[in-house]
């Protein structure tokens, strides 16, 4: 019995396919993928819009007006002050532009330090094992059970006077390494046993070559995801501390703005133009980071990928 002509061919094309290699094919493939992964698209849009706001915004607005007495107090939005002023006479639009920058910078600096230190620690624990692993794992576990906010509140309260937003980032970085360390460790534990690592050994690769040429490239997706989570956590912590009044008193970060809003009872004064912008920007920032991470997760982890 052979295949008779009445049977349809095994595979039929019903839409244009990405021609591997060609630019058009690549774009087509990327476009199709993005349509299946709207989280990635929306996350990127939100974050890019915010970055554009704070980088392009300072071309049009004088960010030095983000200080007290830059204008009259508690003015509603006008052509001169598009978002009005606060009771101390800051130009709120300038505060938002500068504050977004400062807050994002705090997050990125703390996240970066956290990810670098954390992955180094996680790496040592996972790759070398033994006592180093036991001690590191124990320390990370203990540090992870105690709420970060407690440590941070105590530390920043001790150092409160003269704190800058960069100092804030360093304080937060003290704890930002815990999760990356744990995550990198567990990934290394898996990859250390991978078939391709054993193959590399059989191919004469030494320890360092295996670490940097075999394991590290495969760790990248996890590091990127860890980094985004660390940035989000650092921003969350910094804004939280600042909203408690434990932040840099002389810098117009978003968290300090929230603090002043509460200190000046903005709700009772009805200063809506002061309250809504920082809350909205922070919501955009947190949602953007969350969606970006969820989108990248789906990209990196095929098991979570929806069936096509």
């Amino acid at each position: 019995m052979t295949e008779s002509t009445s049977f349809p061919p095994r595979v039929e094309r019903i839409a244009e396919e990405a021609e591997p290699g060609s630019l058009r094919g690549t774009l087509l493939g990327i476009g199709r993928y993005l349509r299946r992964n709207p989280q990635l698209v929306f996350g990127l849009i939100l974050l890019l819009a915010l970055i554009a706001f704070t980088t392009l915004g300072r071309l049009f607005v004088d960010v030095t007006e983000a200080r007290p007495l830059a204008g009259p107090a508690s003015q509603p939005p006008s052509s001169e002050f598009p978002l009005g002023t606060d009771p101390q006479g800051r130009n709120i639009l300038a505060v938002m532009i500068e504050g977004s920058y400062l807050t994002i910078r705090t997050g990125v600096v703390a996240g970066l330090i956290g990810i670098v230190f954390g992955s180094a620690v996680g790496f040592v624990a996972g790759y070398y094992g033994g006592w180093a692993d036991r001690i590191i794992t124990w320390v990370v576990d203990v540090l992870l059970t105690v709420p970060a906010i407690l440590f941070l509140v105590i530390i920043s309260a001790m150092l409160q006077t003269g704190l800058t937003s960069l100092g804030m980032a360093l304080i937060i970085a003290l704890l930002a390494w815990r999760r990356p360390a744990r995550q990198v460790r567990s990934q290394i534990l898996v990859m250390r046993e991978a078939g391709y690592v054993e193959m590399a050994k059989l191919s004469g690769s030494g320890g360092l070559s295996i670490i940097f040429r075999e394991i590290a490239p495969n760790l990248m997706p996890y590091l990127i995801s860890s980094f985004i989570v660390a940035v989000a956590a650092a921003i969350l912590a910094s804004v939280g501390l600042e909203a408690m009044g434990l932040g840099p008193q002389n810098e117009p970060t978003l968290g300090m703005t929230i603090y002043w809003i509460m200190q000046f009872s903005a709700f009772l004064l009805g200063l809506w133009w002061w309250i809504l912008p920082p809350v909205l920007i922070l919501i955009v920032l947190f949602v953007g980071l969350y969606l970006l991470n969820a989108g990248l997760d789906e990209l990196a982890n095929p098991r979570l990928r929806r069936r096509t």
Binding site: V11, I14, A15, E17
Partner: peptide
């Protein structure tokens, strides 16, 4: 059905 093909 995939996005571009039918597999019989």
């Amino acid at each position: 059905f995939t996005s571009t093909r039918v597999i019989h």
